[in-house]
Design a protein around this nucleic acid. Structure first.
Length: 579
RNA sequence: CUGCCCGUAGCUCAAUUGGAUAGAGCACCAGCCUUCUAAGCUGGGGGUUACAGGUUCGAUCCCUGUCGGGCAGGCCA
């Protein structure tokens, strides 16, 4: 792990630590090493002297000189310079950089792992959309971000669990069940005016037809009984809907559960298929209903109550979330005795930590940001550490077609589904474009660009680099394993050194992506890496007469192919050998 | 009205979380295929990082204020 060639940063950090101990014993100064933007500033830069100068009341350049004087020798270092206000620039010996290609080939897909996570248990919960209809393009971004983030964390050495919270209890599911049943009644020639606020989508009719095909008129009930005493549909639409739901439960009795379950199973199955096709997989589908059935909500609220954070008012139970920085207190049990969604969420989040996760990451749509204080407050009130819950907010994605916003109305049937997007631009482009932006940044998704099979399209740009390498190696026809022993000293061309330098960054990029929950860093890195490869491809011939030079160059591009493949895999994008 | 996020090249966005001369792509201009995939490469112009202060060796980044955009503020989820 601490081989200087593989991990120069740790090695140098160690050296500077020793120097620091001599110059300023007991100093708590952090050793920071950065890769400078400019080549003339060396391979690594350390700002230690400038940090120390303040406390020592000395000129930072003088401090730098002293640090260098006591810095232990290393066969990794070529030379050291003091520059600018007091930077210490370290130049690495060329041979140390040249050896990287062989090291990458030996490590294969393991290259880039840093062990940052120390096998810590982390949960990433994402998507968690209500199973009341097809996933739309907004869910797609959460799916792509969450999946890539989970991959990045796993690669960085965390023990990651991917979880989907299934909202299979509650009013929205009741509305879906009712919608399905009303469509079913239409097939039985029992007509109840279909409410505007019920689910309008064509998939509801399909489910109704499915039930009808299986069971005929078994679930038929008289429409008149459903409508009797119902509040006016126009004046009180929500009350009207609730009335219909209550009637459905009463008229159907035990059969209601069948309709409810049928709709849930269908929609969840559809959602799961959609995500699977998208390359998004979950280790656990956590049922909200199971919280109710196992009595976990009662237990969670009791726990808060024992800690003195629950009070009764207006017939409802309230959580005193204002005590934890929330704007107002929140109801956990309604006047009618039903638990709120929030109550279930308290139980759910307390349960997460009972399952032993050191950290829990929730990926939410940015419109839920106001929800964070109350959930964190509830965790604290329940005796858990709220800092171990990290909420990653994902902003909306806006689709553009022909330079114009594509319709994103939430009215049924008008929104673009994830499935439609995938069909239009392909899974690779969709996965890549979704994570090309910082998650908290609004995303303009250019459909025409994502579809274009040209150099404008960054996905193809990167995949093309991979395919080019595969093509060369295929033309060579030898075994990649033999390239590990190639003579690294033959790699001297500027474009080769640039490529080697880029490859050396990969572990750090992965590290940063994991620490900052920022898979977009991988995407940007891959663009840079592909650019270096294309530059190399144009300026140097690989299959040359000189056998040693040929093998050295093939080793370098084989190593590049490995890193391209590793990076694309983290993003869930394929790495084709031919294009 | 209150809270959170955002404001960087004409457009879409980065910037190693406080580092050195703020970088890419698109668009525009000028070039490179008899050679391993031109879905590629090279060069050029383009900026008071919304604005005004502050913190320090050093600010796109941290603090305050102003302007502009987005999102929230249910006994909905």
């Amino acid at each position: 792990m601490s081989t200087p060639y593989l991990d120069p940063k740790t090695h140098l950090s160690d050296l500077f630590g020793q120097a620091l101990a001599q110059i300023a014993p007991g100093s708590a100064c952090a050793i920071e090493l950065e890769r400078p933007k400019q080549a003339t500033h060396g391979d690594w830069a350390c700002n230690l002297a400038m940090q120390l100068a303040k406390g020592l009341k000395r000129n930072p350049r003088e401090v730098a000189a002293e640090l260098i004087a006591v810095l232990p020798n290393s066969d990794l270092i070529d030379r050291i310079e003091i520059a600018g206000p007091g930077f210490i620039n370290v130049f690495i010996k060329p041979i140390a950089k040249q050896r990287l290609a062989g090291h990458i080939l030996k490590l294969g897909a393991e290259y880039g792992r840093t062990g940052l996570g120390r096998n810590e248990k982390v949960q990433v919960e994402f998507v968690s959309a209500n199973p009341t209809g097809p996933l739309h393009v907004g869910h797609g971004r959460g799916a792509a971000f969450g999946a890539s983030l989970a991959n990045v964390l796993a690669f960085a050495g965390y023990d990651v669990q991917r979880e989907y919270y299934v909202n299979d209890a509650g009013r929205q599911m009741d509305i879906l069940a009712l919608s399905t049943w009303l469509r079913y009644l239409e097939l039985c020639a029992e007509f109840v005016p279909f409410p505007d606020n019920a689910y309008q989508g064509g998939y509801v009719k399909l489910m109704a037809e499915g039930i009808f095909a299986l069971h005929g008129e078994r679930y038929k009930r008289p429409a008149a009984e459903l409508l009797a005493g119902a509040p006016d549909r126009g004046e009180a639409p929500e009350e009207h809907l609730d009335h219909l739901i209550a009637c459905a439960k009463q008229l159907l009795g035990d059969d209601y559960a069948y309709i409810h379950n049928y709709a849930l199973t269908e929609q969840l199955g559809d959602c799961r298929n959609d995500l699977t096709e998208f390359g998004v997989h979950f280790d656990n589908w956590f049922s909200e209903k199971s919280l109710h059935e196992a009595g976990l909500i009662d237990r969670a609220v009791e726990r808060l109550q024992q800690n003195g954070h629950i009070y009764q008012q207006d017939g409802a139970l309230w959580f005193r979330s204002t005590e934890f920085g929330d704007e107002k207190d929140r109801v956990v049990r309604r006047e009618n005795g039903a638990w709120t969604y929030f109550a279930a969420d308290i139980a759910y989040h307390l349960n997460k930590f009972e399952r032993g996760f050191a950290r829990v990451i929730d990926v939410w749509g940015a419109d839920h940001h106001g929800y964070i204080p109350r959930v964190k407050g509830a965790l604290k009130a329940g005796g858990a550490d709220p800092d171990r819950l990290i909420v990653a907010l994902v902003q909306f994605a806006v689709l553009y077609r022909n330079g114009q916003k594509a319709s994103m109305s939430t009215r049924a049937g008008e929104y673009v589904t994830l499935r439609e997007l995938r069909a239009e631009v392909g899974n690779d482009a969709a996965r890549f474009f979704y994570v090309l932006r910082k998650s908290e940044q609004h995303l303009d998704f250019d459909l025409d660009l994502a579809k274009s099979q040209s150099s404008d399209n960054p996905v193809y740009y990167i995949q093309y680099a991979h395919a080019r390498i595969a093509s060369v190696l295929n033309g060579w026809g030898g075994a990649v394993a033999d390239l590990m022993e190639a003579d690294p000293a033959r790699l001297e061309h500027p474009s080769e050194l640039a490529l080697l330098g880029r490859l050396a960054e990969f572990p750090q990029i992965c590290d940063a992506a994991a620490r900052e929950l920022a898979p977009h860093l991988i995407a940007y890195y891959l663009k840079d890496l592909a650019a270096d490869l294309h530059g190399y491809y144009v300026s140097c011939q690989f299959l040359v007469e000189d056998e040693a030079l040929k093998l050295a160059r093939l080793a370098l591009i084989a190593a590049t192919r490995q890193v391209l493949a590793s990076g694309l895999a983290l993003l869930g994008v394929s790495a084709p050998d031919k294009m």
